[in-house]
Design a protein around this nucleic acid. Structure first.
Length: 732
DNA sequence: ATACATACC
DNA sequence: TACTGGTATGTAT
């Protein structure tokens, strides 16, 4: 295990850059303490009850640490005068709303720190020890580790900026960045002045101006995402040749892949050119794992390093000169960390046997998933700063943090985090847990309090989101509205209704508006209570966003919908009240207001009458053979929505009874040849115009039929509104 | 189920 | 002159 323990450090990179961040110092023995007795590490696992690990925030950097973006942890920012930069940032931030909000957030984190310290104080040393059970599971993780380093992360160097530099090479030696109000990325000259991504533009300008003694000015190039997308597409295309099977782009400038299969062909056929390997790779090589295990470790490492070096050259050539950096390791997490080590235009291979030593030497902030806050908590509560600290105090971490968090942290400390995307389970993991959990759109603007204007912005956002959802063919169950006040406080409000999934922009808008109104109401209410004098403080908003989560495939929802509609109508009207288990889900909730079963029976009878007793497959009714009408089906209401409308009708029947059937619409339909009849009212429709049919069914369910059903049910006349009202009006 | 927090680029 | 983004996911209750 120890003979070929060797870390290949960037044998091909042009420049070996000096590092002063202390992460390169010789790491502790890499013999595996998880495997041996953990006696000596146990002692370090508990921070003494009365040990003072509080660092009073007297210096600027500490004060700034959680407040501002002052990462020196970024490539190209080593050895800069961080203190001076932080001081300028703090000063320039002044007392803006933003910085005040950041302070409030930071105070909350400090509160958490105190809370955790208190828990720690009350704990017995015993509780903070690593349990045998924990170490047992860690051994399990380690044993399941991939043996070969085949995971690769390719990260483009200062991507947006580099794209711009292609056409503006003169900016290379001046401090420059992409982005106006918000800096997206900066070049390496600007980074020396502390200018980095996610920094406000005016801060960046001030930094350069001041730190250059007023000699230089930050050049800000507006972003051009079309260009970046195009370059990104080229990069993806190149990288796909190295791993067509699991290559995945994480963002415009980051790609994950596994070169295991490529290595097999590379090693099996030494005479193959890249083109030949690429062709052969389309058929997944069998027994990749076994083959690579049979090769010596050294051979695999060399080959991997060589292949990735070629890949990077390939990318550079194909993009007209964009450089990238890469990490190669046993897991994608380690590869990701490694990709940053020799940036720019470099690569780092972490030998599997050196992985432990590698992660132990890392500052915890380097681990993807440990950000500003977690770093602060770990540092100030547990005195944990490095991967080694994290490992040694794993018992403490388990005691203090939620199980999921603790597991993540401890796995990170032994280099096993994100192991799901390691080669062995890459495919399965990414297929299985790949599905997106949510999708959202949000937009910032200058603080605005005009209600109508805000709502029109909300509608725009809903439309954008609906477009995205349609493109991805997903429908969402939970709708969340997010609003950021002028004070930068963020309020959210969510809603989800059983069995209902949304994609349609109008429905999205409706729900979002309702949620927004609720937020406003609550906010005004709160504010009125606080300021007894006058509650007229305006509700000023600087950001609106909508998010859909609990996503499912559009097609599966369609299938479900069809099934539901069919069941809704085909359940025997004489059956008992219980129905199928599905039906019960949909039917029970509103029994108080409406006798749903009775309603359903009546509607079924109507339906059956119209069909002359012949059973009709609802799928035949609600979809046509046209392939471009996919979306229309979504608009067909689920039973619960129908009931909601019935309920609404009942509640507001006197002034709000709806007749959505449009004369013009009817004429349009009559002018055409091919017709299909509505299952409820028997009116006929174009088969091609699915949207109209669905709109009609919707309207029909809302209007005539339901009204009649209710009338029959209630045995009394429901006054009919003379006024025509469109469906959309009904909803607003 | 939902409000809020954290992280990423 | 102005004056801090957008998207996704996890945690706490």
């Amino acid at each position: 295990m120890s003979n070929d323990r060797k870390r290949i450090i960037n044998p091909y990179a042009k420049e070996e850059r000096k590092r002063s961040d202390g992460n390169e110092k010789e790491s502790p023995s890499s013999t595996d303490p998880v495997m041996k007795s953990n006696k000596e590490t146990r002692d370090a696992g508990h921070v003494g009850n009365d040990q003072e690990i509080i660092h009073p925030e007297n210096n600027i950097s500490a004060q700034a640490s959680a407040l501002i973006i002052s990462a020196s942890d970024k490539a190209g920012m080593e050895g800069i005068d961080r203190k001076r930069i932080d001081a300028i940032i703090l000063r320039e931030s002044g007392n803006s709303q933003y910085i005040q909000s950041a302070r409030r957030r930071d105070e909350k984190v400090n509160g958490r720190i105190l809370q955790l310290r208190q828990r720690l104080k009350e704990a017995s040393p015993r509780e903070c020890e690593a349990t045998e059970e924990l170490d047992e599971s860690l051994r399990g993780y380690q044993q399941r580790q991939a043996i070969r380093a085949t995971c690769v992360v390719v990260d483009m160097d200062m991507f947006y900026m580099a794209c711009e530099l292609l056409s503006r090479p003169n900016l290379k030696n001046k401090p420059a960045c992409v982005g106006k109000e918000m800096i997206l990325t900066s070049n390496y000259v600007a980074r020396r002045y502390g200018v980095r991504s996610a920094m406000a533009g005016f801060i960046g300008r001030k930094l350069v101006k001041e730190l250059s003694g007023d000699k230089l000015k930050l050049i800000q190039v507006p972003s051009n995402f079309d260009l970046y997308k195009e370059k990104s597409r080229i990069v993806n295309e190149v990288i796909r040749e190295y791993d067509p099977h699991h290559m995945k782009s994480y963002s415009l400038d980051e790609v994950y892949l596994d070169i295991g299969p490529y290595l097999v062909l590379f090693l099996q056929h030494k005479d193959y050119t890249h083109e030949q390997i690429r062709e052969a790779l389309i058929i997944y090589p069998a027994e990749v794992m076994r083959f690579l295990q049979q090769q010596s470790s050294m051979v695999c490492l060399k080959a991997a390093d060589q292949v990735v070096f070629r890949l990077r050259q390939h990318v550079q050539k194909a993009t007209g000169g964009l450089t990238c950096s890469a990490g190669i390791a046993r897991t994608h997490t380690i590869a990701k960390i490694a990709s940053d080590k020799n940036k720019p235009n470099g690569q780092l291979l972490v030998d599997p046997v050196s992985t432990l030593a590698f992660v132990r030497a890392l500052s915890i902030r380097k681990f993807p998933g440990i950000g500003r806050v977690t770093e602060k908590l770990l540092q100030q509560v547990c005195d944990i700063h490095t991967g080694l600290d994290l490992y040694q105090k794993r018992g403490l971490v388990h005691f203090l943090f939620q199980p999921a968090t603790a597991e993540f942290l401890v796995k990170a400390s032994i280099g096993c985090s994100g192991e799901g995307s390691s080669f062995a389970s890459f495919g399965a993991e990414t297929e299985g847990s790949e599905h997106q959990k949510g999708i959202s759109r949000e937009r910032s603007f200058s603080p605005e309090s005009d209600w109508a204007l805000l709502n029109s912005r909300l509608e725009d956002i809903a439309r954008m989101l609906a477009t995205d959802m349609k493109r991805k063919s997903v429908v969402g169950h939970t709708i969340t509205l997010k609003a950021k006040l002028a004070s930068f406080d963020v309020l959210t409000r969510a809603q989800s209704k059983k069995g209902i999934y949304i994609q349609n922009p109008d429905e999205l808008t409706t729900i979002a508006s309702e949620l927004f109104a609720a937020i406003r109401a609550q906010h005004k209410n709160n504010h009125n209570k606080k300021c007894s004098k006058d509650g007229s403080s305006s509700f000023s908003i600087r950001l609106l966003g909508i998010r859909c989560s609990n996503l499912i495939e559009e097609s599966s929802y369609q299938a479900k919908q069809k099934g539901m509609i069919k069941r809704f109508f085909t359940v025997t009207p004489l059956g008992d009240n219980k129905g199928s288990e599905n039906e019960q889900n949909y039917m029970t909730k509103e029994n108080d207001e409406v006798n749903c079963t009775a309603t359903r029976k009546l509607m079924f009878n109507r339906y059956a009458k119209n069909q002359n007793g012949k059973e009709v497959n609802s799928a035949d009714i609600f979809s046509t053979n046209s392939s471009s009408t996919k979306s229309a089906v979504i608009n067909v209401d689920s039973p619960i929505n129908i009931k909601k409308k019935i309920k609404t009708d009942l509640n507001t029947q006197t002034e709000h009874t709806v007749d959505t059937y449009d004369v013009q619409q009817q004429q349009d339909e009559e002018a055409n040849e091919e017709h299909v009849s509505c299952p409820l009212c028997n009116r006929s429709f174009l088969t091609q115009n699915n949207a109209k049919l669905n709109a009609h069914i919707d309207a029909c369910l809302n209007g005539d039929t339901v009204r009649q059903v209710i009338r029959e049910q209630n045995c009394k006349e429901v006054p009919k509104s003379r006024k025509r009202q469109r469906l959309t009006d009904f909803w607003s």
